[in-house]
């Protein structure tokens, strides 16, 4: 299950480089940052959708609470479903640009620095 079984003896430079990268803390950090964002966010996202349907089905009174004029909670939540899709996508793009790409650049610099 681990790469220890096949430790390369400096044969192919590519393979050596790959193992180095995999072992590095930066790569672990990179993967951690990605998973820590992707899974909770998609879980929340799906839960939020499902919650809306559930509320619409079983909390009629709450959903029809009027907020302003004819606009009730259900309508606002419904529109928020659309908005949240865009918000999450924008967040992900920003997260990737801000937290993932710089680290990846750093990794690349290190590898190319002592590799080639």
């Amino acid at each position: 299950m681990s790469s220890v079984d096949h430790t390369p003896s400096g044969s192919a430079p590519d393979a050596q480089k790959w193992v180095d990268v995999q072992a590095s803390d930066d790569f672990a950090e990179l993967k951690r940052r990605l998973t820590k964002f992707v899974f909770p966010v998609s879980g929340l996202f799906l839960a939020w959708y499902l919650l809306y349907v559930l509320l619409a089905d079983y909390a009629h009174d709450f959903m029809s609470t009027k907020v302003v004029g004819n606009i009730n909670v259900g309508l606002i939540f419904g529109l928020l479903q659309f908005v949240s899709t865009f918000v999450i996508t924008t967040l992900y793009v920003r997260h990737a640009n801000k937290n993932l790409d710089p680290l990846a650049e750093k990794l690349r610099g290190e590898i190319e620095g002592d590799g080639k």
Binding site: S3, H6, W18, V21, A104
Partner: peptide, 18 residues
Amino acid sequence: PDVNQILLRLHAPDPLGF
């Protein structure tokens, strides 16, 4: 047996140049 290699390949970010 090479699952680690494949997963690394899938997850290594593009700027790594793999």
